[in-house]
């Protein structure tokens, strides 16, 4: 990473597109996504790594974007909710969330979907305990979680 003044040059690939950005060295990935790239589908609930709302995939692994700094992601491929599908189609996980009523206010939904996508890509037929384990870092205040578990199971069956 080069730097210009107090800013660092960051090469970042987001949803398959490369960006060259000038960022504060202490800017979080969350801030870079939302403020520099205006990808506001990634939400924030605490900015302290506590709620899971800001989950994105870094090289396919769900990470809390509020805790990730530029130096950690140079050369990585980032997937946000905007990159889960191309075009106007819904990803099977999104479709299952819709069909099962697994979203209400929708604020935890992008993070929840990305955590679910990561789980199902490595384990398409997870047990309930595996789903709980994979999503336990994502808080939701609306649904009571049950419909989310049902949606992930259903999406897994579709993806398998």
């Amino acid at each position: 990473m080069g730097s210009i003044g107090s800013r660092e040059v960051l090469e970042l690939s987001v949803n398959g597109r490369s960006h060259e950005l000038l960022v504060k060295p202490y800017a979080t990935l969350l801030e870079i996504l939302r403020e520099d790239l205006r990808l506001t589908g990634t939400k924030h609930g605490c900015e302290a790594g506590e709620c899971g709302t800001c989950v994105v995939l870094i090289d396919g692994v769900p990470q809390l974007s509020c805790l990730v700094l530029p130096g950690q992601i140079e050369g990585s491929e980032i997937t946000t909710i905007e990159g889960v599908t191309n075009g106007s189609e819904l990803h099977p996980v999104q479709q299952a969330f819709m069909d099962h009523g697994a979203l209400q206010c929708g604020y935890c939904t992008p993070g929840m979907i990305l955590s679910s996508v990561a789980l199902l890509e490595s384990n398409p037929v997870p047990s309930r305990e595996e789903i709980k384990e994979a999503l336990s870092g994502n808080l939701c205040r609306c649904t009571g979680y049950a419909s989310i578990i049902e949606a992930v199971e259903d999406a897994g069956r579709f993806m398998a």
Partner: peptide
């Protein structure tokens, strides 16, 4: 009937602009 919410797609795709998403 058991139907999806009318605002589901925007929320699922990260397109719904909550207040802090507006600029």
């Amino acid at each position: 009937k058991s139907l999806p919410r009318v605002d589901a797609v925007g929320k699922l795709k990260g397109l719904t602009a909550y207040t802090d998403d507006m600029e």
